[in-house]
Design a binder for these strands. Structure first.
Lengths: 149, 149
DNA sequence: ACGGTATTGCGACTCACTCTCGACAGAAGC
DNA sequence: GCTTCTGTCGAGAGTGAGTCGCAATACCGT
């Protein structure tokens, strides 16, 4: 065991897909792994800069594109119109995003398939993909709200 | 009958909300009304320019913002990451977007409320808003696909 | 018709993201 | 271990969507 930052699933995914494991990509992977909620491209950029990782913006975006393609992160849109990314497993699922602190949780399919089928039936469309985003307060923020500081 | 473009519900909405009914706003309303699917800001800009309506970009965006606030159009995100707008009624609902021709249909709540409740229960989040976007082929495009030209 | 004020247009600006291209470095071969 | 081949990187200019400030304009109530 000599690899220093090995157990990073993102790096693994890159490796398995046949991409080179370069320094910048590892750096991006680490940065993402440390975020447990969503993050924007500029969040990562700032984080990278504050640690002097010397990541160029282009590289950052390229890495993000790549990871999106591998379904290791998912690109989503916040209500504000910003683009954010969420680290996630490659299976189909959705996210609930805390509108206060940004924390996210995965949501397995909760009967949405039925809704999609119903929509398909009523509208006559052949639904190919869908996107469900839920915004609300996580437990923490609810607690903080009801118990004013 | 002297009003030339009167029965525009978008203009009505603006009027009722107490906004001035200016030329540019009427122009934007007409442009939107003519689109029966989604459109992007630059679609509108191009349309306005090709008719020499003399709409400035800033005005266009301001009008779009206003209409979004009034829930007369809804801002959404295409899978490509582009921002698009869909004309719609102010009640809560969702859209199915044809991924080929861009046609859209409204979808009334089809049991999604149950899904949202289930998500809330499982995740512990207090869901405030959600967004569901469905992409697929509309009837027309399905027909075209199965009967190759 | 007039005046007050909401709106507009202009144009410069910001910000996110992309592109190009020479330099570099990871992986495979010798 | 060293070389080579090629995928990837960094820098920095470019692009395009969207915003801002401000003077000029045009609604709308009176």
């Amino acid at each position: 065991m000599r690899r220093v930052t090995p157990a990073n699933p993102i790096v693994d995914a890159l490796d398995q897909a046949g991409y080179r494991l370069t320094g910048p990509r590892r750096a991006v992977a680490d940065l993402i792994t440390e975020h447990n909620g969503h993050f924007t491209a500029s969040d990562l950029e700032a984080a990278a800069r504050s640690r002097r990782l010397g990541l160029s913006r282009a590289t950052l975006f390229r890495a993000l594109d790549l990871l999106t393609e591998l379904h290791v992160v998912e690109r989503m849109d916040l209500p504000s119109g910003e683009h954010a990314y969420v680290p996630c497993a490659p299976a189909h699922h959705h996210h609930v995003i805390c509108s206060r602190c940004g924390r996210t949780s995965r949501v397995e399919d909760c009967g949405l398939a039925g809704v999609v089928a119903e929509v398909a039936r009523r509208s006559g469309y052949a639904i190919e993909t869908h996107r469900l985003e839920l915004f609300g307060l996580c437990r923490h923020c609810q607690a903080k709200t009801s118990a004013p500081d």
